[in-house]
Simulated assay, not measured.
Amino acid sequence: METTISERKNTEPILRVEHLKKYYTYGNGFLSHRKTVIKAVDDVSLSLYPGETLAIVGESGCGKSTTAKSIIRITDPTEGTITLHGKDFGKLSGKELKSARQKIKMIFQDPYSALNPRMTVRDIIAEPIDISGSYRTQAEREEKILEACDMVGLNRDYLDRYPHEFSGGQRQRIGIARAIIEKPDVILCDEPVSALDVSIQAKVINLLKELQDKLGVSYIFISHDLSVVRHVADRVMVMYLGHVVEEGSRDDIFNSPKHPYTRILLDSIPSIGKEMPEDEQQLIAGDLPSPENPPSGCCFHTRCPHCSEQCRNTAPALTEVPGQPGHRMACFC
């Protein structure tokens, strides 16, 4: 359910993240007083609108998952504001936080480690409503469990089994059922199909799209698989070394990429029966810099084929591409 630029201008974001930072600090040894700071996420802002899918893409280590975990406060951000339904989600605590968390959930990457092996499927799916107490009777609890089970295509007869008795695809359906049982407005999907067999990935992706149509839920969809992103996303945000380097609609990013890093990522998508001439191929040189010691200036300049002296010394701002509303990039090119 793609939202256009004009539609979004008349709609308030359901979730707004501004200047999000997540830094990790640790000592360099028992006798050392020096501290090392890892800038996992460095000044990320985003808006998520009702019923849309915002995809976050980039190499492993670029900060995608840390961004999601900071938004949902699995780990509290170092700086920044997170606004959910107009409330400062980052400052909520106690009962207010418990209530707000009914509206934002997460589907994790690894369905094998995301489920408690000592709990039955029934209790795993019911865990969110058990925590929030959003039912009055055991009959109402069971009704909610069965509804979630049916929505994700799980056999009701399996509810008293344990996670080890299921395949990876079935386990991910259990995780999805747990995420939707309270009918949230926002679900953060952290590489939800990357650990699954290719034959199962399409079924899970189609399930997520069906649930979006049925429940009107908004997704932040984290993935390194651009083929999947092209299928599910309304908008795409490209991250590199903790920074956003480009953001735009799906068509902007896939049909008219502007940042050198985005173009290189797209060139790396395998295409059956189509071979790009070697002189047109763009490959990323070198390794991803360490977030312990990020490069000065543009974070991508050490690997960019178009690097200039300005790139080495000055960090470009994320600015709108002329003539393309909503399409922004951080580059001097």
Rank of each mutant, 00 (worst) to 15 (best):
A68H: 00
Q281S: 06
H231E: 14
I56V: 15
A177E: 05
E59M: 04
G216T: 09
P192H: 05
C333G: 07
L46E: 06
H85M: 13
K258V: 15
I222Y: 06
A68P: 01
A148T: 03
F254K: 04
G242H: 03
R230P: 03
Y23W: 12
G94E: 02
T120V: 10
S99N: 11
I176Q: 00
F254S: 00
M106R: 00
L84M: 10
R178A: 06
S6Q: 14
G90E: 06
I107A: 00
K258L: 14
S45A: 08
M1Y: 10
K91E: 14
L84R: 04
P77C: 05
G80H: 04
R235A: 04
F108W: 07
E292D: 11
P291S: 10
I253S: 03
D225C: 06
G248K: 07
D251G: 03
Q109H: 08
G86K: 09
Q310A: 13
K144N: 01
R34Y: 08
V198H: 01
N293R: 11
H33E: 14
H327Q: 13
C189N: 02
S6N: 12
R263Q: 15
G216D: 12
L159N: 04
T75M: 12
Y158V: 05
N28D: 11
H301N: 13
H301F: 14
N155V: 01
M239Q: 01
K214W: 11
E79A: 11
P294K: 08
P117K: 05
H243T: 05
L241R: 04
I200V: 15
K22Y: 02
K209D: 03
D160G: 05
E292P: 00
Y24Q: 03
E182D: 09
E280W: 15
R171N: 09
D190S: 06
I180M: 07
D130K: 14
I74A: 07
G58T: 01
I5Y: 15
P260M: 02
I14P: 01
L97E: 07
G169H: 08
K144Q: 13
L208A: 03
E182N: 15
I71W: 08
P325H: 10
A233W: 00
P291Q: 10
K39Y: 08
S218E: 03
I181D: 02
I72R: 08
L288I: 15
P50G: 02
R34S: 14
D190L: 08
E246P: 08
I107T: 00
V44C: 04
R118I: 12
D225Q: 04
R230H: 14
T319I: 13
L48A: 07
E247F: 15
V186C: 10
T11P: 00
N293F: 13
E127I: 07
T81R: 11
I187N: 01
L154M: 12
M151G: 00
L283Y: 14
C311A: 10
V57N: 01
A285C: 05
I72A: 09
